Simulated assay, not measured.
Amino acid sequence: MGMQINTNIAANNSYRNLSNTQNDLSKSLEKLSSGLRINRAADDAAGLAISEGLRSQVGGLTVASRNAQDGISLIQTAEGSLTEVHSILQRMRDLAVQAGSDSNNVKSREAITTEAKALNDELTRISETSNFNGIQLLDGSQSSLKFQVGADGSASSQIAVDLSGANVKSIATTLANGTTAATGSEFTIAAVGAIGGPATFTSTTAAGVQTSVTTGAGFPAAATFTSVDGYADALRADANFSSAFTVSVTKDANGAGNGIIVSAKDGGVVSSATPPAGLAVGTVGAGVTGGVKFDTATNAQAAITLIDAQITKVSTARSDLGASQNRFESTIKSLSVSKENLSAAESRIRDTDMAEEMVKYTRANVLSQAGTAMLAQANQSNQGVLQLLR
């Protein structure tokens, strides 16, 4: 090999290897200092794409979990107010039971009415002031609220909370102005000896709420009964009918039954598109309006029935809210598990194995020092030319 000074091949080779080692050393330092195996797309293009997708899911699940917590807070706010609504309605029912006794004089009934009105006013106030983050919960303005509890845009990522049954304002209005009773609809004998058979009865309240009931399977067929008394007893024994209606028998001047009067437990006006066989629709009972009244024992009894209906509504609404709260709690647990597993998956792809990377760093560091020494030696290798020039 000749002796050249313009081109030092050994030095160039040492420099190239040293540059590669310095590049590896720089990458190791970057990974060790950031804790990430992938700092740029060039480090692992496919891994970057996958890890970014996982990172989006983890972030979405984190926010979804907070949304579910907000849902629980909203439900607790609404349910807390409904707890007091229940207490108020129970107190109003106690007053109605108290007013159902004629041992009360006029002043006593006036005192009962005054307290009941104050309680109903409080129901209205509760409906107008129960809100969460400015959202009214109990005034009927919100029938349903949706909560995003998933990381994607599918329908299954949302949970709807039904607030339609928690309309306290409607309850207060019903107790103040609604129909508390109806005189009942009369069904008179049209064909003696043909009485019986299934029938359908419909109740319509002053608020327009309809309840339709058909007598249950196995109800005695037509011509089973020769009098309305037996048919009335059969209606009372029928679970479908007795769940929403009551029946009484009308008598003629001789004390014989000449018809039945069907009344709705919700105070609505009764009609029948399919009346019992052998009976014809007579007088349709009119509703008694003006809300709960305690001025007579009869009105107090009607008030009990109406208040019971409102208590049932609140109980149903609270049950629905409780079920939704339990669902949110289960959702949060599920989100936590999913978030943990997805975070682990992203970590395996994107995070640096510090022990392994430290091994690479140590190797590159040693090679860097060796390369620097060899580059110095290579730069000195052409010094022998000077001996020829002396």
Rank of each mutant, 00 (worst) to 15 (best):
G290R: 12
G285S: 00
G290V: 12
G290P: 13
I260E: 01
G282A: 09
T274F: 12
A286F: 10
D266Q: 02
V269R: 05
S272G: 04
G268M: 03
G291D: 07
G285K: 01
F294Q: 01
G282W: 06
I261F: 05
V288N: 14
D266E: 08
S271R: 07
V270W: 05
S263C: 06
P276L: 03
G267N: 04
V281L: 14
A264G: 11
T289L: 15
L279E: 07
A264L: 04
S271V: 13
P276E: 05
V288T: 15
V270L: 01
P275S: 02
G267C: 08
G290M: 14
I261D: 05
T289Y: 04
S263T: 14
T274N: 15
G267V: 01
G290S: 08
T283Y: 01
T274K: 02
S271C: 11
G287A: 12
T289M: 15
G278F: 07
L279D: 00
A280H: 10
A273R: 12
V262A: 08
V281F: 02
V284S: 10
I260N: 00
F294D: 00
V288L: 14
P276F: 11
D266Y: 03
V270T: 00
T283V: 12
T283Q: 14
T274L: 10
G282H: 05
V270N: 03
G268N: 04
G285W: 09
A264Q: 06
K293V: 00
A264N: 04
S263W: 09
G285C: 02
G267E: 03
V292S: 07
A280P: 10
P276Q: 11
A280V: 12
G287V: 11
G278E: 11
V262E: 05
S272L: 00
S263I: 08
T274D: 12
T283G: 03
T274R: 07
T289N: 14
G287Q: 05
G287E: 05
K293S: 14
V288I: 15
A264I: 07
V262K: 07
A273K: 13
K265C: 01
V269H: 03
G290Q: 12
G291K: 07
G285D: 02
F294H: 00
K265H: 04
S271F: 11
A264H: 09
K265T: 08
A277T: 15
I261E: 09
T274S: 14
V281W: 10
G290T: 09
V288D: 15
V284E: 00
S271A: 13
I260P: 06
V292D: 02
